[in-house]
Design a protein around this nucleic acid. Structure first.
Lengths: 144, 144
DNA sequence: TATTGTTATACTCTATAACTATA
DNA sequence: TATAGTTATAGAGTATAACAATA
């Protein structure tokens, strides 16, 4: 790419960055509303989404990209609702592994179903979706 | 598009939604770090970004998509840093218009410059950027 | 000594409801 | 009465620092 394209004021890259932001803002707006309907916050739903297998608190913090001290509260609230439980790891009693309960698996499926019904992207045809996916993948590769 | 494509588990639409989320997460991660370097939070930077001309508090709330009561605090903090000032509208003394100060304009330019240097999208060539922009625009049209 | 997780603290953002000043 | 903005309150997420239990 040219130096000009990357740095010029009002560049295509900037427009795209704004579109990404706007698209994500609307996606989050939609998703947050749906998530709230399940009585969850976004970080809480994200944790459920990540829990295919049990994860240590520190691993949850990594997935959330936040400090470990925050995970305590988020998991506390999920545990208070009976969606996850803490289990001490057998080999190392310092580690607590977070696992979905039966109810947690049910709510996780609801979250999954809700995410799949998200409008917007679905309006594109198969070829367009494929093209978009490829472009986004390449853009992602450029960001860390 | 087919019903199958839209609703099947693991559909392209879902993959794309996750890519959008991931791309935005990284963009926000990068931008938030840069913004923090300027001593600002994202909502504060967003307000500066919106202030081309003075805006009433209620208009700022609309742009932020949040309740008007929150804007008081956000503007308070910007005002405490000398980046914006409140001005009572002449014709209607209930309305307060928020305007950038000289320092605020300077910081706004820094925010703008920082946003333009965002990596990732810039790795795509001109044709790809153009294609991506078009696809995102159509996806946006489908979301409210 | 080092690591895992929690607690204490403080700040920002968020919404709801009650309030003040103005229209 | 209605509207614009503020204040009061409460909850959630965030980071930093100090702490307990365990390794």
């Amino acid at each position: 790419m040219s130096e000009q394209t990357r740095t010029r004021y009002g560049s295509a890259a900037e427009e795209i960055a704004e579109q990404i932001s706007e698209l994500h803002r609307r996606l989050v707006g939609y998703i947050d509303g749906q998530i709230a309907g399940l009585g969850l916050t976004l970080p809480q739903a994200f944790v459920l989404h990540q829990l295919d297998a049990p994860l240590a608190m520190s691993q949850v913090a990594e997935r959330l990209h936040c400090d470990a001290s925050n995970v305590t509260g988020i998991v506390d609230r999920l545990e208070a609702r009976g969606l996850v439980e803490r289990q001490v790891r057998a080999g190392d009693r310092r580690v607590k592994e977070i696992a979905l309960t039966t109810e947690g698996r049910k709510v996780k499926r609801q979250v999954k179903r809700m995410l799949m019904g998200t409008p917007g992207i679905g309006e594109l045809n198969s070829r367009e979706q494929s093209a978009l996916r490829d472009l986004l993948e390449r853009a992602l590769a450029g960001l860390r």
